[in-house]
Design a binder for these strands. Sequence first.
DNA 1: CTAAACTTACTGACGAGTAAGTAAGAAAAG
DNA 2: CTTTTCTTACTTACTCGTCAGTAAGTTTAG
Lengths: 197, 197
Amino acid sequence: MNKKEQIIKVASKYFSEVGYDKAVLEDVAKEVGVSKAAIYYHFKDKFALYEAVLCSRFKDLAQTICDIDAANPEQALREYVEKFGGFLLEKPCFSAIFARELADGAINMPQSCTKQMSQILKKLSAILQEGEAQGVFEKENPFMVQLMIVSTLVNYRTTRKLRITVMKNLKEVKNIDAGLKDIIPNLANKIIKALKC
Amino acid sequence: MNKKEQIIKVASKYFSEVGYDKAVLEDVAKEVGVSKAAIYYHFKDKFALYEAVLCSRFKDLAQTICDIDAANPEQALREYVEKFGGFLLEKPCFSAIFARELADGAINMPQSCTKQMSQILKKLSAILQEGEAQGVFEKENPFMVQLMIVSTLVNYRTTRKLRITVMKNLKEVKNIDAGLKDIIPNLANKIIKALKC
DNA sequence: CTAAACTTACTGACGAGTAAGTAAGAAAAG
DNA sequence: CTTTTCTTACTTACTCGTCAGTAAGTTTAG
C-alpha cells in the first residue's frame, strides 16, 4: 500500500468516527506518519480527500450491486440486501459516512457518487419492476424501499452503542439485540414479505 | 413567544439545515435580532442550546408516542408509524437533527433524551410483544423494526433533493417519488405486512 | 432603584491551507 | 563517465479566517 492509499484509509477512519467537520488533517497525518502538508501534496484540499474516500467506496458498492444476477426477482432482492449489508460489514467505516451523507441530504456529494447512487437505485428499481411484471411483488416506491433497506442497515451500524444505552434503560428488551451481520438475512426476509403479493 | 423560545426556534432551524458544527451562533443571533452574547445570557454554551432544542422535541415526541392507545396491535403499530411521521411533518427541523443523531450514534445526546428514546422503544416493543402474544405478529427484533420505521422516515425527509438528483439521472424512476406525507400510510402498511403471521 | 436582559469589543484556540525549503532519485547534458 | 537539472515526495514554520466564549458595560422592565 502506497502512502496516498494509507492517507485515504486513515482519513476514512476519521471521517467515519467523528464526521467530516471534526476530522482533523493533523490527526490523520500523525497517524499515517507524515506531515499535514504531505497530505496537501497528494490532495488539493480536505474535501478532495473526502471525495477520494467517497468515490472509491461508491464505485466498489455500485459494482457489487450491479453484479447481482439472480434467477428471479425475489432472489435478486434478497441478494440486493445481502450484498449491501455484506459491503457494509466489509467496509466498517462506510456505514457512518453513508449515514451522515443521507442525514445531510448529500448536498456536497460529488457528482460521480450521485451517479453511482443512481445506478444502485436503478438496479433496485429494475428488480422491483421485474417482480411486479411477474406478479410476485406489489408496485412500490423504489425510494422508500431503498431507504427501508439502506438507512436501516447503515443506522443499525451507527447506533450500536445507543442501543446498548437504550437497553440499559429498559427491562423488556434485554438480550434481544443482534449485530448487523445477524439482521441482514432477517431484513431481507421482511422486505420481501412486505412487498410480496 | 419570548426571546429564549425564539432563540431555540431559530437555532433549531440552523442545527437542522447545516448541522451542529456548521451552525454558527452569530447567524442565529442575527436572525433573532439579538447579539450573540445575549444567547450566552440564556444558555450556558452552544451545546446547552442544542440540548434545549433536542430535549423539547424528544419530550413532545415521546408524549405523542406514549399516548397511543389502540384497540389491537395492528392498529397500534399503524398509529405508531402515523404518529411518528406526523410528528416529523409538524416539526420540519427535527428530521435532519434526528437523522444526524442516528448517524453520529447519538454519542453526545443528553441522558434525558436517551431516556425518552428508551420510552419510545418501550412502546414499540410492547406493541410487538402484544402482537406476538395474540399470534398477529411474528417475533422480531424491536431495534430493527424501529430503524425500519424511524430511519426510513427521517432520511426520507432529508434526502428529498438527493432523490430529485437521482431521478434526473434515470429514466426508469420518473414520477414515482412522493412526499413524506404520502409515504407514511404506505410505510405503515408495509411494516405491518412484514410482521404479520 | 435593582435585577434581568441585553450590548460592543474583544480574546484565544483551532485547523485549513501555504510558502519556502530539503532530500533523494532519475534524467539529461557534456 | 560525471555533473547538472529536474522531479517527486516530502518537511517546518508559519498565516489567517473562523467562531465559541467572555469582560465590562448599558439598557430595559418592573
